[in-house]
Design a protein around this nucleic acid. Sequence first.
DNA 1: CTGATCGTGTAGAACGGTATACGTAGAACG
DNA 2: CGTTCTACGTATACCGTTCTACACGATCAG
Lengths: 342, 342
Amino acid sequence: MAPTSKTNRVTIKTVAADAGVSVAAVSKVLRDAYGVSDALRARVQASMEKLNYRPHAGARAMRGRTYTLGILLPDMRNPFFADILAGVNEALERTQYQTMIGVSRSAETIEMSLIDSMIDRQMDGLIMIGPRMPPETAEAVSTRIPTAVVGYHVPQLATLDTANNDDVAGAAQVVRHLATNGYRRITMVTLAVPTKNVVVTVQRERGYREAMKERGLAQHINIVPADQTAREVQTAVRHLLESRHRPEALFCWTDMVALHALSVAKDLGLSVPGDLAIVGYDNTIYCDLAQNSLTSVDQSGQVLGLQAARLLIERIDGRQQGDHFVVSPRLVVRGSSRPRPS
Amino acid sequence: MAPTSKTNRVTIKTVAADAGVSVAAVSKVLRDAYGVSDALRARVQASMEKLNYRPHAGARAMRGRTYTLGILLPDMRNPFFADILAGVNEALERTQYQTMIGVSRSAETIEMSLIDSMIDRQMDGLIMIGPRMPPETAEAVSTRIPTAVVGYHVPQLATLDTANNDDVAGAAQVVRHLATNGYRRITMVTLAVPTKNVVVTVQRERGYREAMKERGLAQHINIVPADQTAREVQTAVRHLLESRHRPEALFCWTDMVALHALSVAKDLGLSVPGDLAIVGYDNTIYCDLAQNSLTSVDQSGQVLGLQAARLLIERIDGRQQGDHFVVSPRLVVRGSSRPRPS
DNA sequence: CTGATCGTGTAGAACGGTATACGTAGAACG
DNA sequence: CGTTCTACGTATACCGTTCTACACGATCAG
């Protein structure tokens, strides 16, 4: 038996009685609704304070808003997501909204079941971060609940809002930087997902491809997919670095992969960047550690999170057309991609 | 206006009508309650399936359970917490329970407001991970909502359950290992928090102190506090490594600190472990990367999470006495603490 | 002076479930 | 054969809010 301690919960009725007004009046004060005098408001607020009243979210969910936003995260391990969350929190600081996080472990089935349970819990809106679902599904979701999405390219949709960095440009910057520093055999390590244009990795692959052609390196284009797990990544990279035509540089779709690549390189006795340059994406805190000194693309996760939250609230408040925020990525050069000794 | 689309929501009434039974009967099936025949159950379940019915969490919260557990996390950046979450998820896989995560950013005020909002949302129970609050507060929380806590030492309390590793033993293992490998000036880098015995860091400090004395190194005992932020940690470590009597080894209370220490050491041109041994705690995924090769203490986050979830559900189901799970930590030796060259 | 308008507050029906109390039919029992 | 028990279902009060409809007094326009 869950001890709901029904004995003496302070409800809206208690407050109303204490303040000597009707329940409806208290509700109005709570919702900041029209038709309350300053005097009444003050009286009610004093009572709420005194009784330490807190509205019951479940009851609220029956009719109105819950003032809770759901956040869908692919995994807990990527520190980049922490930046995004920080931005979301910043945006919500001055509002009534709270967040609840769900972790999908990058599986579409878990993703969908989490979305369902967020809807069951009457979340007012949903922020999805790098979802795995196809765009039709995303659109379907957005018709059921106001939705904003980070790291997912669907600028054509009007039913949901997006916040992205320009992944094509970011990847292109990486390639140009490496090419300028004398690297030619640049291989990209990407994520093994069904090729859908909406996913950030596919956008980065495009940027990589285009920039390689632009620099006359088309014959060196090589995109290697690897799964999310540490083992998969390491075996893929190891295989690559032990091959006869070892790449001169690796462009990894995310920092975590780049860190694994650094590890494998070190294991194989290769020096970075002497024998191999490595570049990541996201510019997470680990890049700056001296033992990594990893060149990476900063896509301002905090800004993305902040904008996504802002857009979502606008939409909850009634906006109908899609709004799509884009930030320019910025290459942060560190030791792992210093000019190639000729 | 949030589109609550009241038009055609499938409720328990719809299901009851479709199955040709009463609302109460459907509710019984939902709750797996006593007094339903197999035939009725089957019929109702078929209807629910057909109509794609999903119970409304808010409505449920008014009287019964929400089947949702709140999880309180100090921060998103420590990968150790991902292990714990994995364990919790594992434990809940076969149950009806779902989780909602809140991040307190290590601030007691945020912590308390998150707890309040979890209670407002009628969570059936709460798992707190490494909370910052004093034990009296934790006890107060546990009287309001069934609570299990990970990484928080309050074995004397009966109102809440705990899952811990033996932090004293873990720290002692580190010191003994370093001492055996020839290190004498072993300094501990800990977290700057008000000294409360319940916190893991304080327990680890105790283990460090005891083991140092045991090995006759009492005169080298040195515990340096540093805040959670990257900058604070780095300046503290830098100050330490530039001092006249530079320590021979650093025992860091968590891996993140150890990684920063590695970075500072590399910056200062110190070789690890040649000039300085470094040991962390938690054995997170980063320890195993070759560029870190960090000796660390494994406290099986997954097991802790799993046990915490198990204990919490037991308590929700009515257990009154406290249950306290303890796992033995295991030292994982890597390159950063190899024997000292004499 | 009359009716309309405005500002403020109240009453009470939802909302979608849960849980209690109770009805009923058939079986078991003496 | 009457009584009690058991198994299964139903009717309905209730949970704590929101929100629509409306009441009421004061002010204002004509």
